[in-house]
Lab assay of single mutants.
Amino acid sequence: VTLFVALYDYEARTEDDLSFHKGEKFQILNSSEGDWWEARSLTTGETGYIPSNYVAPV
């Protein structure tokens, strides 16, 4: 499993987005949709879409 870490804070803009804080780690569930990836936060357990340019591989 490839994990990603948040480089910046992000505040959700829609109900499908996932808010997160810098340093939070994610498991990517689906990265085939372009710039927005479906991810699960390893901190909160919540699932939603995150901007791929806000995260980097651990």
Rank of each mutant, 00 (worst) to 15 (best):
Thr14Tyr: 15
Trp37Val: 06
Thr47Glu: 09
Val58Trp: 13
Glu24Asn: 05
Phe26Gln: 00
Glu24Asp: 15
Ser19Arg: 04
Ala56His: 09
Ser52Met: 09
Ala6Lys: 00
Gly45Pro: 01
Asp9Ala: 06
Trp37Lys: 03
Ala12His: 06
Thr14Met: 10
Phe26Ser: 00
Phe26Asp: 00
Arg40Leu: 13
Val5Cys: 07
Val1Lys: 11
Ala6Tyr: 01
Glu15Ala: 13
Ser19Gly: 07
Phe26Ile: 05
Ser52Asp: 03
Arg13Leu: 12
Pro57Ala: 10
Ser31Ile: 12
Lys22Cys: 08
Glu15Pro: 14
Thr44Met: 02
Tyr10Phe: 10
Asp35Lys: 10
Gln27Ala: 10
Asn53Ala: 14
Trp37Arg: 02
Leu42Trp: 06
Asn30Trp: 08
Gly23Gln: 03
Ser52Gly: 07
Glu24Thr: 08
Ser31Phe: 15
Glu38His: 14
Val1Tyr: 12
Lys22Pro: 04
Thr44Cys: 04
Thr2Tyr: 10
Thr43Gly: 07
His21Asp: 06
Pro57Val: 08
Gly45Cys: 10
Gly34Lys: 15
Glu24Gly: 02
Asp16Arg: 15
Gly48Val: 02
Val5Met: 09
Ile28Cys: 04
Phe20Gly: 00
Pro57Tyr: 06
Gly34Gln: 14
Ala12Phe: 03
Leu18Asp: 00
Ala6Leu: 01
Tyr8Arg: 09
Gly23Asp: 06
Pro51Gln: 06
Pro57Phe: 06
Asn30Phe: 07
Gly23Glu: 04
Arg40Asp: 01
Val1Asn: 15
Leu7Pro: 01
Asn30Lys: 08
Asp9Thr: 06
Tyr10Gly: 02
Asn53Phe: 09
Gly23Asn: 06
Ile50Thr: 01
Arg13Thr: 14
Asp17Leu: 10
Pro51Phe: 06
Pro57Leu: 08
Trp37Met: 06
Ser19Cys: 05
Trp36Ala: 06
Leu42Lys: 04
Ala39Ser: 03
Asp16Phe: 15
Ala12Ser: 12
Lys25Ala: 07
Ser41Phe: 03
Trp37Gly: 01
Gly34Asp: 13
Ile28Lys: 04
Lys22Gln: 08
Glu33Tyr: 13
Tyr8Leu: 09
Asp17Glu: 15
Glu33Gln: 14
Asp17Ser: 15
Ala6His: 00
Ile50Gln: 00
His21Met: 12
Glu33Ala: 14
Glu46Gly: 09
Asn30Glu: 08
Asp16Gln: 13
Tyr10Trp: 09
Asp35Phe: 14
Val55Ser: 01
Phe20Leu: 05
Glu11Pro: 05
Asp9Glu: 06
Phe20His: 00
Arg40Ile: 14
Ile28Leu: 07
Glu33Asp: 15
Trp37Phe: 08
Ala6Trp: 01
Ser52Lys: 14
Val55Phe: 09
Trp36Arg: 15
Asn30Tyr: 07
Arg13Met: 14
Phe4Arg: 03
Ser19Met: 03
Lys25Asp: 02
Ser31Glu: 09
Ser32Cys: 11
Ile28Asp: 00
Leu7His: 03
Thr43Lys: 13
Thr43Phe: 10
Phe4Trp: 14
Pro51Thr: 02
Thr2Met: 13
Thr14Val: 07
Glu38Cys: 15
Leu3Arg: 05
Gly23Pro: 00
Ser31Tyr: 13
Trp36Glu: 04
Trp37Cys: 04
Ser32Val: 10
Leu42Glu: 08
Ala6Val: 01
Leu29Lys: 05
Glu24Trp: 08
Gly23Met: 03
Val5Trp: 06
Tyr54Asn: 03
Val55Leu: 12
Gly34Ala: 14
Leu3His: 11
Leu29Thr: 07
Gly34Asn: 13
Glu38Lys: 11
Trp37Ser: 02
Ser19Thr: 09
Gly48Ile: 02
Arg40Trp: 07
Val55Ile: 11
Glu46Ser: 10
Gly45Glu: 05
Pro57Lys: 09
Arg40His: 07
Arg40Pro: 00
Pro51Ser: 05
Glu15Ile: 11
Gly23Tyr: 05
Pro51Glu: 02
Leu3Glu: 11
Val5His: 05
Pro51His: 07
Leu42Gly: 02
Val55Glu: 01
Asn53Met: 10
Phe20Ser: 01
Tyr8Pro: 00
Asp17Gln: 15
Lys25Tyr: 15
Leu18Gly: 00
Tyr49Ser: 06
Trp36Gln: 07
Thr47Pro: 02
Ile50Leu: 07
Phe20Val: 04
Ser52Ile: 07
Leu29Asn: 05
Ser31Gly: 10
Val1Met: 13
Gly23Thr: 02
Tyr54Phe: 11
Asp17Arg: 14
Gln27Thr: 10
Leu3Tyr: 13
Leu3Gln: 09
Gln27His: 13
Val5Asp: 02
Val58Arg: 04
Thr43Val: 10
Thr47His: 08
Ser31Asn: 13
Val58Phe: 11
Ser19Gln: 04
Arg40Asn: 04
Ser19Ile: 02
Asn53Gly: 11
Glu15Tyr: 10
Trp37Asp: 01
Phe26Ala: 01
Leu29Ala: 05
Glu46Cys: 11
Phe26His: 00
Val1Ser: 13
Asp16Pro: 04
Ser41His: 07
